[in-house]
Write a protein that binds this DNA or RNA. Sequence first.
DNA 1: TCAGGATTATAGACCACATTTGTCG
DNA 2: TCCGACAAATGTGGTCTATAATCCT
Length: 366
Amino acid sequence: MLKEEVSRGDTNSWARVCDTCRSAPCTVYCKADSAYLCTSCDAQIHAANQVASRHERVWVCEACERAPAAFLCKADAASLCATCDADIHSANPLARRHQRVPIMPVSGCVYGPTGKRMPEDDFLVLPEGDDQTTDHERDEDEAASWLLLNPGKNSNNQNTNGFLTGGEVDEYLDLFEYNSGADNQFCEQYNQQREFSVPEKSCGSDSVVPVQCAEAKDHQIQYQNFLFGMECDTKSGYNYNTSVSHSVSVSSLDVSVVPESTMSDISVSHPRPPKGTIDLFTSPPMQVPTQLSPLDREARVMRYREKKKTRKFEKTIRYASRKAYAETRPRIKGRFAKRTDVEAEMDQMFTNSLMADSGYGIVPSF
DNA sequence: TCAGGATTATAGACCACATTTGTCG
DNA sequence: TCCGACAAATGTGGTCTATAATCCT
């Protein structure tokens, strides 16, 4: 296969160019055509007819920009090929804890309304749209895409599947974690999923969620199964190794205090949630998309934006008792200090204060 | 357009010590 | 196999500092 490589603009010199126009950097790889395509060419080619629209494509790795992406790293919000994924996430222990999910090839329209790549596009098929949309609209659609994953607290915190019920669990991420079963169904389900084609028309009036529910559920199940170590060599050539699932952090993105009494339990492959925590393990995880009123949608978008502003990646608290001790421990300029040092410091401060206030060199006695 | 200073953002180091983990008899 | 004693390793949070990125002149 002839691949022309050029250095264009802000793309790196290794970036593969579109096999069709040979000018723009490629963004997707079409398996059926064995071709790397840019956004516009992909849209043109695969919107031409129904057969073409069924071609399965995957994003190109954001790191090397030369190979089809195999995994989506949530922490880095990046789609990576197997090689880059291995390189990046074997670099250090923190990187190893990044959550990654396999990227399923998608057919139909793989772009959001902006025609711009979004991380969640890797597992959500978004409605076709206009390339000229604004940042605001892009944000709206990004929010909308997450709305699919949001069960909606406005439903009395009642969630039929028990997912995210009532808590402040992060609403953007970790939605494919904590599966407890159906281990050996991955291959079958994955193959089933591969036979789906994305409906050409959105099923929702607001074009938020065009993915068919059953299909989306299959996506969900597949990712969950993947995360717990399934290995499946499919015809697609996407062989998701088990080692990835083992390196996936249970909660590298959330703050989650893990009761010490349950630590040993959690280390096993199918952990049970401790009491007092939200049960993310045993519940059927998919949220069934529902029709949203414009007001409802607006509210959710606003909530999404608000949380997006404040979201941050925090470490997992493994030992709550240590946290408690650390919080009560005396410090000097942020560092833990010996209690004797603190006492001495307090003495000094007290002495200085007294001298300053009174003007006399009074030595306090305790 | 470029250079250089100012401002802002981010990651990592540091500290003490209770708790956890591993080893040995 | 179980138990106790002991040593070593681990993890915890607020602040500071070095570095990078961005902005402004």
